[in-house]
């Protein structure tokens, strides 16, 4: 018998096409939501970073300057560099954005621990601004239920 090692991505929960579309739409709306969150921008005021965020299959290149997302471009972008990436399954984002997420789906690092998300690259900007990224990536929570239903 041959043992097969499963990568975290192979074990991720799957989502419907409708959920995929809703998650991508919600992600595209994050820069505008961030612009309306001055306390969060203040928290990220020293952050300039290129990163890759979003659904594992359809991520976005985010350009962050002084805590604002000044560009959010769907990947792939030819030869675009990034310092770190945080990508989760669309189903995991949908769970993360529930008004009250289920246990294990309520935190970015809970998702990585359970293999629903993958964190890669140079983690310094992510760790130095960890609460900023947690809160920024939770911004669709108040709006996502409406979008998905």
């Amino acid at each position: 018998m041959t043992a097969r090692l499963e990568s975290p991505r192979e074990t991720m929960i799957s989502a419907s096409t409708a959920t995929d579309a809703a998650v991508i739409e919600a992600f595209a709306g994050i820069p505008a939501l961030l612009d309306q969150a001055p306390a969060l921008i203040q928290r990220g005021r020293l952050l300039d970073c290129e990163c890759l965020l979003g659904p594992a299959s359809r991520a976005f290149h985010a350009s962050i300057r002084q805590g604002r997302i000044v560009e959010l471009a769907p990947a792939p972008v030819l030869m675009r560099s990034w310092r770190f990436s945080y990508r989760a399954s669309a189903a995991a984002w949908a769970e993360y954005w529930r008004p009250v997420p289920r246990p294990g789906f309520h935190d970015l690092l809970a998702l990585t621990k359970r293999g629903e998300a993958v964190l890669e690259g140079d983690l310094h900007p992510f760790m130095a601004h960890l609460q900023y990224f947690k809160d920024m990536l939770a911004l669709p929570r108040r709006h996502f239920v409406t979008a998905a239903t």
């Binding site: 690092l109 990585t112 310094h124 130095a128 960890l130 609460q131």
Partner: peptide, 29 residues
């Protein structure tokens, strides 16, 4: 579920990163 080396290094604010790491362990309710 994380590398504890991040908790004490001069280029990351210790108080901020410690709090941010454990913030996810608090129930949303």
């Amino acid at each position: 579920w994380y590398d504890t080396a991040w908790l004490n290094r001069p280029d990351v604010h210790g108080g901020e990163v410690c709090a941010a790491l454990v913030s996810g362990l608090i129930a949303p309710q």
